[in-house]
Design a protein around this nucleic acid. Structure first.
Lengths: 382, 382
DNA sequence: TGCACTTTGGCAACAGCGTTGCGAAAGTGG
DNA sequence: CCACTTTCGCAACGCTGTTGCCAAAGTGCA
């Protein structure tokens, strides 16, 4: 269903926008329910709409082929509830992860599940045009084999960029990318809408939407379903963060939020590649280099504790190759710092949990696909 | 106009909610326009609604006494536009600032302007019941003199608390306040709705809504009107922050966001009263104590730069007694750090501006009143 | 087997939202 | 004085979610 465009300050809601919003909300609940499905009455309870309104909305969605009936629940003494389910094949999106040395392309269905995948070596230094051509070729090959058309393609890559305009600022170590209008270049080449974002934001979005993690509600209860707020900290060749606040990725005024690696946590500390001193990234990677993983985890933990204290989020997730190589040490070390901080502040409900991010190596590409899928479920740029 | 309550996950929008939203949006534009007013056609352009819809909405608002016609614009060749204006006297709210040694009570009209004020000494250590009684007495005296009824009272005070439940966690140095249900106690005593928040959040809300500051748009242009995103850093007897993201105060999952003073920026640094080491608050206040204001400003600047990098906000505002005593030194020192950081990161549009927060000593109380006024304009807990 | 009861969910009528078509009102300019 | 422009309200309309009602589809007891 077409989502209503929102220009600058136009936030008046007419009936069309209202319908889109409610339809997206219902679709989101259907998606979250997964294969188990959800009944009309449950949808009514969760949305606050009347059962009759839900019946009308789901009738439209069924007519559009996005939703189907799928069996019935057990009776509770009357007519059993009819279970509704999202039709996964009703839409697809491409997720493209351009890493420094590798390209991952995935094709995801409406539920976000990967239905096709391809991974090939990549040299980001080969130049923008060559990489765009190569990526477009891979995408087209994947689509041809799958035999489907797509809503569009999401692209995730390292380094600061302008999400709203789809223009790269720079890719560290590859100056030839400075200012490259990747979105328009790829959209022109593929002929479908393209959305560009940082790799950390894509990974965070994927986790926020698909949420293989258990959510933690406001009351402190562990609840299933999507996560409301968390930080995804990615430690690989560099250190960055994706922030999810209120169920959506926080990108900030100039879409540059998440500069976590260059948070200064040691005044006049050792110099960092960025020209500053005492950045978390420099301290953390130096500790890893000299084999002091515990110290690296402590440094990362101090940064995480700063972030948690500042934003009051629910959860910290760790990812990236360096974390993957020492999962237990990092989770334990970061967790210890958060527990100590919570103890000092006398927080009643205990420390914020720390876990390894789900998704693994494919998580960024899956999240990139969500850049196009998420808006269908009302999880776009609200 | 009654704003629709939102329970946990019920975010379905029905026609009543739609009407409330659009009415609040129009009211917000009228408030922002101030004494100059705004015409129906301008409202239509700004909201994206049709002129006829705006006419119907404003007709309802006029019937409710919230809006009035106020002259006409110059003609541009046809019938001149009728100017509409918010009626300030159509509603009032109380703002109560409980500081460690002083209580400030203000009565604000719909536009947020202070129409009555009272300031008296206060001893927070006198105990919760005595303070509530004293505060309620001051509020009642103010209301009796002004001869108006109010929408409710907003209360701002230092220290961490639970905004959603209106319960204090603790007030540093006054353990007898631990866990005190201030909202319910005061609401029961006054007989009007009460909302409780941290002093820094209240100050930030006041600035965000009334915005005597010039806003800075996404394009980098300086634009009038409310601010989209900024951090209010308050340096007094302690150090705290109020964060405004997307036009609203960010409180976080447990309404504890803004713990800025205890961000660690010096690993294994000097001990802080909180039990940790290297907190900004400890470093900054120690520097002030030994007369090194420049160093204090640099420390504050490093914290501010961390915050700006993490959240990508538009503006940093400084407030509090310590800042007020050395305004120029702090603005210059913090600004220098931000400029250096922006230069290192190669940000095109230059550094984030740093300014002294408007509002002065009364700012917190005014912001507290906005805890009740802002929801009328759609600036509540969206 | 039959009947009372419970629960689900669609049909139809309805109130209320913003939209569209149109005309009155209120200016400017020749 | 009249043609023209622009604003803005009235009336009809399409569409939203809501309400009242009833058929459908089960359970459970006699």
């Amino acid at each position: 269903m077409a989502y209503v465009n929102r220009t600058n300050a136009e936030s008046g809601v007419n009936l069309l926008a209202l319908r889109s919003h409610n339809a997206a909300l219902v679709l989101d609940l259907l998606r979250t329910a997964g294969e188990g499905g959800i009944s009309r009455l449950e949808l009514a309870e969760r949305t606050g709409l009347t059962p009759q309104a839900v019946s009308k909305i789901t009738a439209r969605l069924r007519a559009d082929g996005l939703v189907a009936e799928a069996g019935r629940r057990a009776s509770t003494g009357g007519k059993p509830r009819t279970v509704l389910r999202l039709v996964p094949e009703a839409g697809h999106a491409v997720g493209l992860h351009l890493d420094r040395d590798e390209m991952t392309v995935v094709l995801c269905d409406l539920t976000g599940a990967v239905v096709a995948e391809r991974r090939v070596p990549l040299d980001l230094g080969a130049g923008a045009d060559a990489v765009v051509e190569s990526a477009a070729g891979e995408v087209e090959a994947l689509l041809a084999r799958a035999g489907v058309s797509v809503l569009g393609a999401g692209v995730a890559l390292p380094g600061p960029l302008d999400h709203s305009r789809g223009v790269l600022h720079r890719v560290t170590g590859f100056p030839e990318w400075d200012g490259f209008p990747l979105r328009d270049a790829l959209a022109g080449r593929l002929g479908v809408p393209v959305v560009v974002d940082k790799d950390t934001n894509a990974a965070a979005l994927g986790i926020a939407v698909v949420g293989r993690e258990s959510g933690i509600g406001k009351t402190g209860d562990v609840a299933p379903g999507p996560l409301e707020s968390f930080a995804y900290l990615h430690l690989g060749t560099g250190l960055g963060a994706g922030l999810v606040i209120g169920g959506g990725v926080h990108r900030g005024a100039r879409t540059g939020a998440g500069e976590f690696g260059h948070q200064v946590i040691q005044l006049d500390g050792p110099p960092c590649g960025c020209g500053n001193r005492g950045c978390i990234e420099a301290l953390c990677l130096a500790a890893v280099d000299r084999g002091a993983v515990g110290e690296a985890a402590r440094v990362l933990g101090v940064g995480a504790a700063n972030l948690v204290g500042l934003l009051d989020i629910d959860l910290v997730l760790l990812g990236g190759r360096t974390v993957a190589a020492h999962e237990e040490a990092f989770v334990r070390g970061v967790g210890a710092v958060l527990e100590e901080r919570a103890r000092l502040e006398g927080v009643d409900d205990g420390a914020i949990p720390v876990r390894v991010a789900p998704g693994g190596a494919r998580g960024v590409a899956e999240g990139a696909a969500q850049l196009l899928l998420a808006p269908l479920f009302g999880r776009g740029e609200d």
